[in-house]
Amino acid sequence: MPRKIRVLVAKPGLDGHDRGAKVVANALKDAGMEVIYTGLHQTPEMIAESAVQEDVDVVGLSILSGAHMTMFPRVMQLLREKGAEHIIVFGGGIVPVEDVKKLEDSGVSKIFGPGTDTRDIVKYINSVFSE
């Protein structure tokens, strides 16, 4: 049996817009992945610890409050500190183009903007693990 891809879908920060996170969580589940959904209002510390305990392959962060430049780098840093830098981190939400560039330079693997087809996210994750 091929190993299942495990994904943590988390909502960091204070905004409660979880429509996107839940749609993505469902889509990944329907694509055969095991999705751990953390719920709302997560601190970067909670997210990193959950990711490590669950030994996930991927973390997906959804953020629409504009706090992405604080939240993403913090999660990345905590994952590194916990020896989990192998985890792929992707994001979704309202993130301006130049921030996308900065985040991707800092190790976030990909940012999916508004209007993303969930199949593209599935395809992306599968491609990362297909080699």
Binding site: K4, A25, N26, L28, K29, D30, A31, G32, M33, E34, V35, I36, Y37, T38, G39, H41, Q42, E45, M46, E49, S50, Q53, E54
Partner: peptide, 30 residues
């Protein structure tokens, strides 16, 4: 899910503050 083989594991939602306690280890299994 018997259809996709995937799973949605949501029990951590209920245990948020536990993930900050080093003496609690939570693992979700499908």
């Amino acid at each position: 899910s018997p259809f996709s083989g995937g799973a949605l594991l949501g029990d951590r939602i209920r245990m948020q503050s536990l993930s900050e306690d080093p003496d609690v280890f939570v693992r979700s299994l499908a």
